[in-house]
Design a protein around this nucleic acid. Structure first.
Length: 804
DNA sequence: AGCACGCCGACT
DNA sequence: GTCGGCGTGCTC
């Protein structure tokens, strides 16, 4: 094979295809599909992925691969094909698909440098150039730009006195430690020891150590063990009595933490009935998608664990997706506890290097199970036996940037490739999945009862309008307050949940109601307490709070909205004796903080756990007997057809935190719209009724799961331009679709302006449009020049979860 | 995406 | 006449 087809690291329409490169003779038999290589591309050097090998190229002047970046392919054939599939399904570039499948550490970094050419006569160079380089061999391009010396240097470059060097660099290095070992035979060491002067006690100690322990030892450990420094070692290394070497190691995000080993638990009848079809599918090597629908606390995790156990017995591998895993350290504990160091963990809390190391453990087949967030679905296993997606309904499984994939779709595709089952688990399945289960596309498995047959907690819905009418203006209803006091007295624990979305604290004038918006985006600024600044979450604009209202010049400016901090303050005021742990982005941003806070709560160092979304899942503490939802309806009024579904899911999840063990649980939901079915039915914890009700709404409004939707968003600096382009696109799509499909638009996006760019969109609802992908691709082609140069953006989402 | 090449306005 | 603006087109 002489020629390699390479996808180059240039995310653009025109380069979204394979380029041919010669394999130089010294690299024959070394280059394989799936490897990263450095290739010349125009005047630069860039990274590329080899996708195939062939004998000949149709192209006349094929350049050569410069060097491989990997010893072994980073993408196997299945993942290479999956990349093509992703490209088609999400209309993304091939290179973006490949990069999405790999840890960020494998993405190339580029460096541009300037050096004085070897054959240049230094004496003839302009003085300015000499001073720039003074003694340095090279200077970076960025430094040259900063010095404003670029024109001069370019002139010299064209004369051939200066060379421009393009370099491809690895982003993250493999971590290494220095080890020391005995390099000479013991006799020689003994010999040397005898001739050692009496005052060389340290050297003596070191050598005696190596006479006892021959194996290599970490240099660091040696130093601390014997109380020596590198100077002692230096002499011995020089005399070749000892040797030193670098050994590659893994970063260990879990430190030396031991996970308590657990054994499989006896299954309940319900669990046994649910697991049998899954085990059958594993044994038959048959692809099938299961929807494991079980109320909170019904023991879904044990079903996952024992299914995985079965897969491991066959010497196959398992992928477990959980929503943002750093949020559920308890989950990690359960998997590591059962499968020990056969488990790799991949989540957003890890550093790039740590993620890379976990990924390498998978690639080298040192682990058999990966537990991780969305991107873990691309784990490079070659012998998959099962894929599990816990909390299947979670929207974080959808990636909201290119490639806009849904992990559930990728999971099913990969499971087809490997002929293995997918298990989607949830207490509140997405309507899409439940509808598919009803139609028999997925195999529905139901866990009706909680583990010890405890009752679901009693739920009370409090109408906050009534509280207001009765003169209670605090954020706690009388009932909730009374219950909190009761639990404090009994030394039982409380979880208070704040639905933060729509609740970010904005800044408002109390006199005229003016809300301070971002000057570049049509969205209110969020108040950040820690630096007393207002910040735009879309473009990053920051400003300090004005002293007077820009509208009416009133000085009555207030930070509005109920952030967790405000709740914490109010709690401190009315219940000063209560110890509160607050969990939100501010208190959990530090690494490991999340887990620490939860541990503190579990150990009983606090009475109340106050938090946002992140405490809705996975908490399983025996002493929690009261859950309070401070405002249930903040999500309900978002411009999103899934808002009812999300509200129902969230309330059900939070309620499930209470009374999971012996003590009975109680839930209080505060709301301004108690009559809304999603709140009412969450109170009754009746998923089936909610499903029926919501399906009706979806049917009437022609939303999923009855219709598919796709969204085209256009943005441009000029309002009229984005309107007219969206208009044209809408018309074009309309002309290509069947009568059954609906095209809505052009309409302004729910956030009509971000970063001074006006955003318009067009929504397509359809049941069957096999050509739609092609049609949308044509649109991208058509506007390609304007996208490349004119500052127009056209983004296409073939299954949007956020319609903004 | 970069980068070179190329064609028009304001400067030595 | 030249420097430099950014429009156009190519990269195996």
């Amino acid at each position: 094979m002489n020629i390699a087809s390479v996808i180059v690291d240039v995310p653009a329409k025109q380069t979204d295809r394979a380029f041919d490169y010669k394999i130089p003779s010294h690299l024959k038999g070394v280059i394989f599909p799936g490897m990263r290589v450095v290739v010349p591309f125009g005047p630069r050097k860039i990274q590329g992925f080899v996708t195939g090998l062939k004998e000949e190229s149709d192209f006349q002047q094929v350049k050569s691969i410069l060097e491989p970046m990997d010893l072994n392919p980073v993408l196997n054939q299945e993942l290479l094909n999956l990349g093509d599939w992703l490209t088609e399904k999400t209309l993304c570039y091939k290179i973006s698909a490949f990069q999405a499948m790999l840890p960020a550490a494998l993405k190339a970094k580029y460096e541009k440098k300037l050096v004085i050419a070897v054959n240049a006569d230094r004496k003839l160079l302009p003085e300015k150039v000499c001073t720039l380089f003074h003694n340095a061999e090279e200077i970076t391009w960025d430094d040259a730009v900063k010095d404003g010396a670029l024109p001069l240097l370019q002139k010299e470059a064209s004369k051939g006195n200066i060379d421009i060097i393009y370099q491809v660099k690895e982003r993250v290095k493999k971590k290494k430690v220095k080890q020391v070992f005995a390099a000479a035979p013991p006799e020689k060491i003994v010999d040397y020891l005898q001739n050692l002067p009496g005052n060389a006690t340290k050297q003596k100690e070191v050598l005696e150590y190596f006479l006892k322990e021959e194996g290599p030892v970490d240099q660091k450990e040696l130093f601390s063990l014997l109380g020596i420094t590198s100077s002692t070692l230096k002499g011995l290394l020089q005399k070749r009595l000892l040797g030193q070497k670098d050994v590659e190691i893994y970063r260990n995000p879990f430190g030396d933490r031991e996970f308590e080993r657990t054994e499989p638990l006896a299954l309940t009848v319900g669990q046994r009935n649910a697991i049998i079809p899954i085990l059958d599918s594993i044994e038959d090597n048959r692809h099938e998608t299961f929807l494991l629908y079980g109320v909170t606390g019904s023991g879904k995790t044990e079903v996952y664990l024992q299914s995985i156990q079965r897969v491991l017995e066959d010497d196959k591998e398992a992928i477990v997706l959980v929503p943002e895993i750093s949020l559920t350290p308890q989950m990690v504990k359960r998997f590591k506890g059962r499968f020990g160091d056969q488990v790799a963990v991949m989540h957003s809390g890890l550093s790039a290097g740590e993620k890379y190391d976990e990924w390498r453990k998978i690639q080298r087949k040192e682990v058999k199970v990966v537990v991780g967030a969305r991107s873990a679905i691309f784990a490079p296993f070659e012998n998959l036996g099962i894929i599990i997606i816990d909390e299947e309904h979670e929207t974080s499984y959808k990636q909201e940037e290119n490639p806009r994939y849904h992990a559930r779709d990728v999971a099913i595709k990969r499971a087809e490739n490997h002929k293995c089952p997918v298990v989607l688990g949830s207490a509140t399945p997405s309507l899409e999945s439940f509808a598919r289960a009803q139609k028999g596309v997925y195999h529905l498995l139901t866990l009706e009862n909680r583990m010890n047959n405890q009752a679901l907690p009693a739920v009370d819905i409090i109408d906050m309008r009534e509280e207001l009418r009765d003169g209670n203006r605090s954020m706690f209803s009388r009932k909730l307050l009374e219950k909190i006091k009761d639990r404090l007295g009994k030394k039982e624990q409380i979880v208070l949940f704040l639905n933060k979305r729509g609740h970010s604290s904005f800044v408002m004038c109390r006199d005229c109601g003016y809300v301070i918006n971002c000057p570049h985006c049509d969205i209110s600024l969020t108040y950040h307490r820690y630096n007393q600044q207002m910040k735009c979450h879309y473009c990053g604009y920051e400003a300090s709070v004005p002293n007077a209202c820009p509208e009416c010049e009133s000085e009555h400016i207030r930070y509005f909205g109920t952030g967790t901090q405000k709740v914490e303050e109010e709690l401190a005021k009315i219940l000063p004796e209560a110890k509160v742990i607050r969990m939100d982005v501010d208190t959990t941003s530090r690494k490991g903080a999340h887990e620490k806070l939860l541990d503190q709560f579990q150990e009983g160092h606090a009475d109340i756990l106050l938090g946002t979304q992140m405490i809705a899942k996975g908490l399983d503490f025996p002493n929690i007997t009261l859950v309070g939802v401070l405002s249930a309806d903040t999500m309900l009024h978002l411009p999103d057809f899934r808002s009812s579904e999300k509200t129902f899911q969230l309330l059900t999840q939070v309620s499930g935190r209470a009374g999971r063990h012996e003590l009975e649980g109680e839930v209080i939901i505060q709301t301004y719209t108690p009559e809304h079915y999603s709140i009412e039915l969450a109170g009754e914890q009746d998923y089936d009724k909610f499903y029926d009700r919501e399906m009706m709404v979806r049917k009437i409004h022609r939303y999923p799961p009855f219709f598919y939707i796709s969204l085209v968003t256009v943005s441009h600096e000029e309002l009229m331009k984005s309107v007219s382009v969206t208009e044209k696109i809408t018309q074009y799509i309309q002309s290509k679709l069947s009568a059954e499909s609906i095209v809505l638009g052009p309409v302004a996006s729910p956030i009509p302006r971000i970063n001074n760019r006006y955003r318009y969109q067009c929504l397509i609802k359809y049941k069957r449009e096999p050509e739609l992908g092609q049609t949308l691709k044509k649109i991208l082609d058509n506007y390609q020049q304007e996208i490349a140069s004119g500052g127009l953006t056209v983004s296409i989402d073939l299954n949007p979860y956020i319609l903004m």
